[in-house]
Computed example of a mutant assay.
Amino acid sequence: MKAILTTIAVIFFGTLTMAQSASTETKVDTVAYTVTLDIQIDTDSKKETKVARLYRFKNSRIKKALSFRTKRNRAKLA
């Protein structure tokens, strides 16, 4: 019973203090700036051909590297 009354009192006084604080809104002056774009595009760019390797199985190197086993990975007979 005491815990219930304490929680009700805390909630009541909390809402009471929040209701009494008058929040004044301050007005802010906005400033507008103009933006100029100076973009130069180089048309003399060279096209590079890249070589892509094709593997027979997807992620074959990764799977091989992650599937290694050590002597300690094996189950021991008790």
Rank of each mutant, 00 (worst) to 15 (best):
A19N: 10
T49Q: 01
R72A: 11
A65Q: 12
T43D: 01
L54K: 08
T43Y: 06
T26K: 12
T24A: 14
Y55T: 08
F12V: 12
R72N: 09
L66F: 01
I39K: 15
L77W: 11
I11Y: 00
I39R: 13
K71H: 02
V31P: 00
L77A: 13
R61D: 15
R72Q: 05
S60W: 07
G14M: 09
L77T: 08
Q20N: 13
N73L: 03
T17E: 14
S23I: 15
R53M: 15
G14N: 03
T7A: 07
Q40A: 10
Q40R: 15
I41K: 04
V35N: 05
Y55N: 08
T49Y: 08
A22S: 10
K58W: 03
E48T: 07
T6M: 05
T34Q: 07
M18G: 00
V51D: 07
Y33C: 03
R74K: 05
T24R: 13
K2F: 15
R61F: 07
Y55M: 01
K2L: 15
K76G: 09
K71C: 01
T49K: 10
N73F: 07
V31K: 03
L5M: 08
S45Q: 14
L16T: 10
A22L: 12
L54Y: 10
T30C: 05
N73A: 06
L5P: 00
N59Y: 04
A3T: 06
K64V: 04
L66I: 12
D44E: 11
L37T: 08
I8T: 00
R69Y: 07
T7S: 12
V28R: 04
K46G: 00
A19H: 11
F68Y: 05
I41C: 06
A9E: 11
I4E: 10
L54D: 06
I39T: 13
M18F: 05
K71L: 02
T36K: 14
I8V: 03
L66W: 09
A75L: 15
K27R: 14
K46C: 01
Q40T: 15
E25Q: 07
R74P: 00
S21I: 11
T49R: 00
G14C: 03
I41M: 02
T49M: 03
I8N: 01
I39W: 14
V31N: 07
S60G: 08
F12D: 06
V35H: 04
N59H: 04
M18T: 00
V28W: 07
E48A: 04
E48I: 12
M1E: 07
I11F: 02
T24W: 08
A9Y: 09
V28G: 01
K2D: 09
Y33D: 04
D29S: 12
T15L: 10
S21K: 05
T36Y: 13
V51N: 10
V35K: 08
K50Q: 04
